[in-house]
């Protein structure tokens, strides 16, 4: 099934929750969806007989410029039918909340923790949302474009990168 067809199906099923279809400027055609409907759409994509997206290959977060909304990107793959689909959702910079898919795809568990760790995106219903790569008491979320390195960490000076 082509991405365009999958998008049309989603649009028909979920209506307003599916915002737009992006083919320009991406090599993986993407459906942009609302942040609070990620879980139900993923569940549908996973359980639908003709789609069978049983594998979440990748979950990435992205901060475009340090001002506009953050985005979370889901790269889905069907191991049975060998086709691909990409979902994208936007969340506000501060206190952005996305529905967690960790209970649908266990892959997402750690990937969402990583997105939380590096971007500060919160995932609703995540079983154990805490930092994964950095220390629990690290200040800020480094991959945000407006991240400012703290002066000290536990009394140790953090060297500035020129």
């Amino acid at each position: 099934m082509t991405e365009q067809e999958i998008y049309s199906g989603l649009r028909g099923k979920f209506g307003e929750k599916v915002l737009e279809f992006m083919e320009e400027g991406t090599l993986n055609p993407t459906a942009v969806i609302k942040a609070d409907s990620v879980a139900e759409i993923c569940l549908f994509l996973k359980n639908n007989e003709s789609l069978q997206f049983d594998s979440l290959m990748n979950l990435a977060a992205h901060d475009p410029d340090g001002e506009s909304e953050l985005s979370v990107i889901y790269h889905l793959y069907s191991t049975n039918l060998n086709h691909y689909f990409t979902l994208k959702t936007h969340v506000s910079r501060e206190n952005g909340v996305v529905e967690s898919v960790a209970n649908i795809y266990r892959t997402a568990d750690w990937h969402e923790r990583e997105a939380y760790d590096l971007f500060g995106i919160k995932f609703n219903d995540h079983p154990d949302l805490k930092r994964i790569l950095l220390e629990e008491d690290w200040e800020g979320h480094p991959l945000k474009k407006d991240y400012v390195t703290a002066e000290f960490y536990r009394g140790m000076r953090i060297e500035k990168v020129k």
Binding site: G25, T26, L27, N28, M57, N58, A60, I73, H75, T86
Partner: peptide, 16 residues
């Protein structure tokens, strides 16, 4: 301007 998710088969599995 654009984005890509590209995956390849690394010895340990899918490297994307």
């Amino acid at each position: 301007v654009g984005e890509i998710y590209f995956r390849s088969e690394n010895p340990r599995g899918e490297l994307g």
